[in-house]
Design a protein around this nucleic acid. Structure first.
Lengths: 337, 337
DNA sequence: TGCTAAAATGAAAACGATTACAAGGTAATC
DNA sequence: GATTACCTTGTAATCGTTTTCATTTTAGCA
């Protein structure tokens, strides 16, 4: 059975298709009587409008594409949830593109830079090149970045400097002075500056409290639980080991906990540990950490792209969301015994 | 700058729009010379076809909608990843609908039963009513269920009876005989039969090995870690407590571990525990468990809906995927001391 | 009741593609 | 060289809407 069209509804209601369209879209300019006739006909026939035709005529797709890496990462999922929430109230559909390897990039890039496929693009936790930005600009495609950066595009980011400072301040306030910092390699050109920013916040916190920075207390390495464990072991084997460690991610913080357990060092009595992200496991291992507003970043990003589609690009371009300190069981005052 | 249309390409290449369309779609019936002219014009103008127009003309949307509950659940994410993988090679887009509360249902239902919005529907881990099935059938909408059941629809499910049996067999083979089973309430009408199936598998395993089923060793309760802990405490306080516990989910198994720790019972020396699902945390707590093919279920479901759109509904309606045993550190031979 | 203004309705032209059919051109055959 | 056949290309209809503009109907007022 072929789908019901507006024509058939018009015929059954004994009106023109223009009138049917008016009943369904514009609220006024239709008599109560004819409105009822049309509505009845729609119901009788089980009519629902062809959205493709509508979109073609209006030149709007009511669709937004989101590009994101690895759907496995819990942080990405949380952000996506926020985006979906932002769209729930609207009429917009969201098409996610999960980019798990380089060749995916080519495929999705073609789709993204086609105005007839979507009204806007969301880019989540992924780098964007100058030439891509240019392409979007050429075709006038609205773009919003979440957890990513470009000077000319609207973006939702997190204040990682403040986050690094907040973590360090927490330890300082507990009375620690020998505070170490471990992270990924800070000069990675592919990565965003988030890790480096966290380190900068750590430096600033020390400086503000006039605690001298000890280069021995800073370690960089490949990302991973095991790598972090090794770095922590080195720190804990120093002649004067730190009494507290700031890890630039929860995964690395868990590696630090492994190292402490390995050396029979009690946390938090002999060593305080603080992480960053507040991933699921953080709760399980009772890790004090800095929580990023993941869900909120998605929500704000979703709202921002909708608004940009409606009203164009508005200032401010950069929306910075605050981080917060989640105190659990891995931090305490240092043991002056 | 308004988007480039096929008309402008035609003008620039000095051919008709029909020819342009032929170059872009059908492979034959065009001279090499004109083909090159058209291709050059496309490139010069940066032309990409309007997909809405194409879809309207062809009556195909190249879009599939997926309905799923709570995007927070790790199992749902894994399934979704599989679905996306199945679609990656195809030209189809996937629009996910996350249903987090009852009023969402109404919204998405309207969208789903509109042939012009999508070519097919995937329903993941959600119950489907008779009347919804009827609506889909009325409009000829292809539907595939993943981790859900309806006798007339194509479905990808897991053999939960085999899973329950596999878990129990593992314990029996280790030498256990006093094996308990805890789960959600088995008579929950909203739920699928998966929990009940797992219990049935447990019963069957015992029966096959001629171990008598002890009703005292079966507990049902609300889903949750804390609730599971309480049930486990009751079991462990029996005059003759079980030496092993099968939990119908990993979350509940972790509750059992909590109970054991609370009573200073050593796992696996004094008590073996096996879970179900293989969630992320299972690895962290070193839990022996039954792994469901989550990713694979998404992959198979994705392939199935694509195939159904192309070739119609084919037998067999039900595809059953196997579960597997993941042996970690919470199961061992019973302690005959 | 008749006239005018306003409101409701209809006819038809888009939107940008695909494709059946017609027409034109080229090559092959005699 | 004329006829035929085939292959390439163009013309125009179509998909299901929205919306402008013209037309008809209704309502208001004297």
């Amino acid at each position: 059975m072929p789908p019901v069209t507006i024509k058939e509804v018009a015929k059954r209601a004994k009106v023109s298709i223009a009138t049917v369209s008016r009943v369904l879209n514009s609220s006024d300019k239709v008599t109560q009587g004819t409105r009822e006739k049309v509505l009845a006909a729609c119901k009788d026939l089980g009519y629902s409008p062809n959205v493709q035709a509508k979109r073609l005529k209006l030149g709007k797709t009511h669709t937004i594409m989101a590009v994101l890496p690895f759907l496995t990462l819990p942080s990405i999922i949380e952000r996506l949830r926020g985006v979906l929430e932002a769209f729930a109230a609207s009429e917009f559909d969201l098409i996610p593109f999960s980019v798990e390897n380089p060749q995916d990039r080519e495929i999705y890039l073609a789709s993204l830079s086609n105005r007839s496929r979507s009204d806007g693009v969301l880019i989540i936790s992924m780098p964007i090149t100058e030439s891509q930005v240019q392409r979007f600009q050429d075709i006038g495609m609205p773009v919003v970045l979440i957890d990513s950066h470009h000077r000319t595009l609207k973006r939702i980011i997190v204040d990682d400097i403040a986050g690094g400072k907040m973590a360090t301040d927490h330890l300082l306030e507990l009375g620690h002075e020998r505070i170490a910092f471990i992270s990924d390699h800070l000069d990675n050109p592919l990565q965003f500056s988030s890790m480096a920013d966290r380190f900068q916040g750590y430096r600033k916190a020390l400086e503000d409290k006039q605690v001298k920075f000890n280069p021995q207390y800073q370690k960089q390495g490949k990302h991973g639980r095991e790598e972090a464990k090794q770095m922590a072991l080195e720190l804990l084997n120093l002649s004067i080991p730190p009494t507290a460690i700031v890890a630039a991610s929860d995964t690395q913080a868990i590696g630090v906990l492994d190292a402490a357990r390995h050396m029979n060092i009690s946390v938090p009595r002999q060593l305080s540990v603080i992480g960053y992200d507040d991933i699921r496991d953080a709760d399980y291992v009772n890790l004090t950490t800095i929580k990023q507003p993941l869900y909120e970043s998605g929500l704000e990003g979703g709202k921002a792209i909708l608004q940009q589609i409606e009203n164009g690009l508005l200032e401010p371009l950069e929306i910075q969301l605050p981080v917060s300190l989640i105190i659990r069981g891995t931090t305490a005052a240092p043991n002056h015994g």
